[in-house]
Structures are given as structure tokens and as C-alpha cells.
Write a protein that binds this DNA or RNA. Structure first.
Ligand SMILES: [Mn+2]
Ligand SMILES: [Mn+2]
Ligand SMILES: [Zn+2]
Ligand SMILES: [Zn+2]
Lengths: 132, 132
DNA sequence: ACACTTATTTAGAATGGTTATAAACTAGAT
DNA sequence: ATCTAGTTTATAACCATTCTAAATAAGTGT
């Protein structure tokens, strides 16, 4: 399996559950945005065996910490994650409650002129809300 | 009282509770960021009478809907609000878990090149995460 | 293959921010 | 003063997320 090495190199044991979650998350043509609930449903459909919700939470957080997933800052009752971990931004369609990727090239270069004493910039994220 | 008209014009009855919350939120030199929990504590300290948590939630949401407060898109277990309703952006200090305003002039002009069929841009919000 | 250690999975309980409920109260209108 | 719709309130319910602790599985050494 192609994810075994990736997991081992990250200090994560390549368990059956993690490998299956990898398939659901990363064996896709395109990257996508999801909530834990979305992911649990997708897993239920695609896989024959059950993975407990606790494991899904654990795995998503482990992958996020290792940089294989990104959390998207957005106000929702559920946390949104992104399998696209490159630097990029988002449209948020308020009516559809859907995220749409904005490549860095779709947003002009962003220059932060203000500095904060002793802190450095870790990330810059742009959220563009859309209405009809 | 200076908030009575403002509330009436918004179709909100100027109740004692709403007027007091207005004072706590808007009778300040500087604008600030808060969670409902923050606000409830501030109210407890500044006021002699009690305002129920339900009323604080109701009022904050009513004010948000009327445009007197802004919700800040950020990943936290609590929702953050802003008494600064002008177009502006934020630093988020990951260690201190604090928001810092970024004026529009602190961020170069942002030009969104991508368009979405039949949708128009409602807002553009930049979140700059800070680490040590 | 076996024993041993440590990581992981799991069901279910607990947590906690937020929202819903429905009864008491109040502002504004007549 | 009376009426009506809006508001406040205590409390319950909701529900995404985290915690717990016991069972299971992976890795390591022999
Ligand atoms: Mn996380
Ligand atoms: Mn709201
Ligand atoms: Zn994305
Ligand atoms: Zn602000």
C-alpha cells in the first residue's frame, strides 16, 4: 500500500483504519473540503467495515497535526477540513454553505504591512463570502 | 439615552437589558473582540444587575444581524465577535489566542480574480496567524 | 513463533457552547 | 387601563467534540 511508508515516516502506525481513511481522503482526483460528519458518511458508503467515530476524529486530528490536512477558519457549528494543504484561499457560498478553492493566483499577492513584536507570520488565509 | 433611537430605528425595543449591553459594547474608547463568555463576565463586573445568558445570546445575535457587531471567522470552540464593524482584517496570535486588528491600510488591496456564476462578493476577510 | 511493550481502536460517557422552550414580564399602541 | 406583540428568563435540550478505560493490534526483541 502506498500510504504505509507515509504513515510510518510520520510516526503513525499504519493501521487498517488509518489506511482506509487515507484512501477515502487522498485517493481522489481532486482535493475536497469536509466536516467530520461528511467524512464519516463517505467512509460508511465506500467501505464495508465500520470505523468508529472516535477513530475518525483521532485520525483527522493526527493528520492535521502532521500537515496532511488543513483546518479552514470559518464560522460554522462544524469544523471544516481541507485535503488541499497547499497555500490557498476560499470562497464561502453563504446560501449553499459550500467552500470553493481560490488559488493563490486567483488572489493578488498579499502584503501585510503591520508587524507584531516578536511574532512571525505562520499563514495568511483569505475568506471571501459570496451571496446571490 | 443615546442608544434608544438607534435601537428603535432598528426595530428593536430599547429594553433595559439591551441598553445596558449597548453601554458595555459601545461606550468604549476602543473597539474590541469578545466571546459570549467574555461579554457575560464583563457585564457581571460592570453592572449591578444580572442579565441572563439567554438574553446576552439573543442580543448579540440581534445586533449582529443589524450590523452592529461582526462575527470573526476563526476556528475556536467559542464564537468571536467584534465591535469594530468596519472592513478590516485580523492577526490571530496562536499562543495568546488573541485577535489583533489589521486595518485595511495594513493589508495591501486585495483583488479577487476568480468569479463565481451568479454570485457576488459580500465580504473579504483576511486572517493572519502568528507564531513565535 | 512467542512474549512484551506501547500505540491504537472502540463504545459509550462526559463536556460545554449554543439553541429551544414556554412561562412571566414589558414596551408601545389604542 | 387594556391589549398585543416583543422580550426576558430559567432551564432543558441539542449536538459537535473530547474523554475514558478496556480491548485489540502493531512493533520489537528473543
Ligand atoms: Mn484539531
Ligand atoms: Mn449569529
Ligand atoms: Zn481548499
Ligand atoms: Zn477586529
Amino acid at each position: 500500500m502506498k500510504y504505509i511508508e507515509k504513515l510510518r515516516n510520520s510516526g503513525l502506525r499504519p493501521t487498517k483504519q488509518r489506511l482506509q481513511i487515507c484512501e477515502v481522503l487522498f485517493d481522489t482526483e481532486k482535493t475536497f473540503h469536509f466536516t467530520i460528519n461528511n467524512l464519516a458518511n463517505k467512509i460508511k458508503k465506500q467501505l464495508n467495515n465500520k470505523i468508529s467515530l472516535a477513530t475518525i476524529y483521532n485520525t483527522v486530528h493526527a493528520f492535521e497535526k502532521k500537515g496532511y490536512l488543513k483546518q479552514i477558519p470559518i464560522n460554522s457549528n462544524q469544523t471544516y477540513f481541507d485535503t488541499n494543504v497547499s497555500d490557498h484561499h476560499h470562497f464561502y457560498d453563504l446560501k449553499e454553505e459550500k467552500l470553493i478553492d481560490l488559488d493563490n493566483s486567483d488572489v493578488g499577492p498579499i502584503n501585510i504591512l503591520k508587524k507584531v513584536n516578536g511574532k512571525k507570520i505562520k499563514s495568511i488565509e483569505v475568506l471571501v463570502k459570496l451571496e446571490d
